[in-house]
Amino acid sequence: MSNERLKSLRSKDLVGIAPLEPGEIQLILDTAEELLDIARRPIKKVPTLRGRTVVNLFMEPSTRTRFSFEVAEKRLSADTLNFSASGSSVSKGETLIDTARNLMAMAPDFIVMRHPNSGAPHRLASMVEASIINAGDGINEHPTQALLDAFTMRRHLGRLEGLAVTIAGDIRHSRVARSNAYLLGKMGATVRFAAPASLMPLHAETLGVEVHHRLESALEGADVVMMLRIQRERQGNMNFPSLREYFDFFGLTPERLELAKPEALVMHPGPINRGVEIDSAVADGSRSVILDQVTNGVAIRMAILYLLSGGHGEPTPAS
């Protein structure tokens, strides 16, 4: 990648961070920067996607991500259709092709898709003309979350390159951790995963990260500390013994946070389990940028919708 600034994304879809080039990530972040402004105006809406249709296809429960996408869509004046089928008979058994055909009958321009199984948006993307935006697939990727995380880091710390970012929690089942590892690695940051090995994917180093089995060593000198939600249903399920013991060893307390750099950011993709992975004093503390993440998420999702809304196909030569 040269210094030449990219002007477009290469794919019609955003299925993950893995296929993106650093220049594309840069473009999304830069575009989001200009879109943040819209939330501060009296009229928080631009006509860019007027008359265009976005289907929010959520095959797994989600409030925050769906909300964030809906706000982004509405601020760009798109028409939104919500299709939720979490855990019901519809999600089980209906094939992706059937889903795709049903959706295409509504002629959407975008499909924002959350699915409990990895790779589902990738498959759907190859079946439909609409742009697919992955809002989280199984344990694979959650690209918009990683982008908003990086955006938040860049806005607070001025850069991504050279940052040490500690991500702690249930890494094995976390698409957020994986997308962040891909993104931050591509942008020159160092990522440290911290979790007991029972919550760490096998060969996690493959993702270009440092692997830590204790939180303390991972926190030392960190610029960013990102805590992942611990699913209560995983306790006692052979993953770890109890929430109590988890917090005892892996919870982010004010004392442990002292190990990180004094200006280190505290992040969390939400929803927070207070007293499980993060102490309230830290979550609500001065270094917490958790609410900024929410605001920034809208701008990132607007940026992606905007960048994917151009015509597709071969780029035409400069006219």
Binding site: A18, S118, G119, I139, N140, E141, L202, H203, T206, L207
Partner: peptide, 12 residues
């Protein structure tokens, strides 16, 4: 379950 499953995010 391998480096590849970790890379492409499928359960191994």
């Amino acid at each position: 379950e391998s480096e590849v499953s970790t890379r492409i995010g499928l359960k191994g």
